[in-house]
Write a protein that binds this DNA or RNA. Structure first.
Lengths: 95, 95
DNA sequence: ACAATAGGCAAGCCGTCACTTGCCTGTCAA
DNA sequence: TTGACAGGCAAGTGACGGCTTGCCTATTGT
């Protein structure tokens, strides 16, 4: 569970999750391009690759390899554990 | 929002939130005692104080000063923003 | 009044982290 | 088949984070 928060602690990794939310199953280069063109983030390919490794180890993304491409898919199920640990009071919620 | 994840990235801070979930409105020394006696964490008072500062800056706890005591109260509303950013699929949920 | 209690401030140490650079592996097309 | 393309594997660097140490302020009880 600590890995999830450690992964989400970095703003670049959160932006990557945003990208995959909008368009799932992207490859490493696609993510690199979209990070620079849409979020003004100029990062090396290695940097993005390391970020993806952290996200995968946290269970927030899954990878599917196909030929020389590797597609990354979002998986938000680890986030559900947050609610089971600390009861969250949302707007309009009657506990 | 980044402050929330940075705050939750540390296991000690998550344990502090657990403590406040079980018993809200504790003081600094109370938290110190319970961290050592119930979680086998031997930390300095300063360390815990700094953790509490991080949690407060993230909006996860609020403080109420009364005389020479300062009580800490849990506030999980910042966690709700996580779901509004990434749709979480829980068990038995039909979207 | 004064000593104990509850907490704060600031500097310093050491480990972790984000990022880069350089080189290497595997896959597809011309 | 050979070169272009997608990706991986380190090692190195600079900065940030967690924790300690030392000293200081304010409030309470006897």
């Amino acid at each position: 569970m600590g890995d999830v928060f450690k992964a989400l602690a970095d703003p670049t990794r959160r932006t990557i999750l945003d990208e995959l939310t909008e368009r799932d199953g992207q490859t490493l280069f696609e993510i690199c391009v979209r990070l620079t063109s849409r979020h003004q983030l100029s990062l090396t390919r290695q940097a993005v690759s390391q970020h993806l490794a952290v996200l995968e180890e946290a269970g927030l993304i899954t990878t599917r390899k196909q030929g020389r491409y590797k597609f990354h898919h979002l998986d938000t199920t680890p986030l559900a554990a947050i609610f089971e640990r600390w009861p969250v009071t949302r707007k309009g919620q009657t506990p």
